[in-house]
């Protein structure tokens, strides 16, 4: 059975996240989704302005988990300054879905956390 939102790519990232875990010795930031209360922590290691490693911790819905897993896959190796310019739309594109406004909040949470890094 295939759902038009919960496609294989999203379910796969939800069930087998590539970037979940704790990053020792990195900077950790967190944010709470005001809609649902989901808490997301992202740890990053930055060298010369480039994100070298990134891991996330937290739980919640499949959309938020898959979105942050996909996002971290996209940002590793990128300049932090470029990541800060990213839009939520890019995450949706990578997920291959168009989200309703309430689910956008779930999917964009990871990017909000990354934008808090000084």
């Amino acid at each position: 059975m295939v759902d038009d939102l919960y496609r294989e790519i999203i379910l796969e990232h939800y069930k087998n996240p590539e970037n979940m875990g704790v990053l020792e010795g990195g900077i950790e930031m967190e944010e709470v989704n005001a809609l649902c209360g989901d808490k997301l922590k992202i740890g990053v290691k930055i060298k010369n302005g480039i994100i070298k490693e990134a891991k996330f911790r937290g739980g919640g819905c499949a959309i938020s988990m898959a979105a942050v897993d996909i996002l971290l896959g996209m940002v590793i190796g990128k300049k932090l300054s470029e990541v800060k310019k990213m839009s939520g739309h890019e995450i949706e594109e990578a997920m291959g879905v168009e989200l309703t406004s309430s689910r956008k909040k779930c999917a964009y949470l990871g990017l909000e956390v990354l934008k808090k890094i000084k």
Binding site: D3, L5, Y6, L11, Y14, K15, L35, C36, G37, G59, G60, C61, A62, I63, S64, T100, R103, C106
Partner: peptide, 30 residues
């Protein structure tokens, strides 16, 4: 159980696919 729909996934699927409206989240009681 592992890999189940979260509260928001369930609310989303029920509403979108079945026109069944339920509430998801902490219901203002964290």
């Amino acid at each position: 159980g592992k890999n189940r729909p979260g509260a928001h996934d369930l609310g989303d699927i029920l509403g979108r696919k079945f026109n069944v409206c339920i509430r998801s989240g902490h219901h203002c009681a964290m």
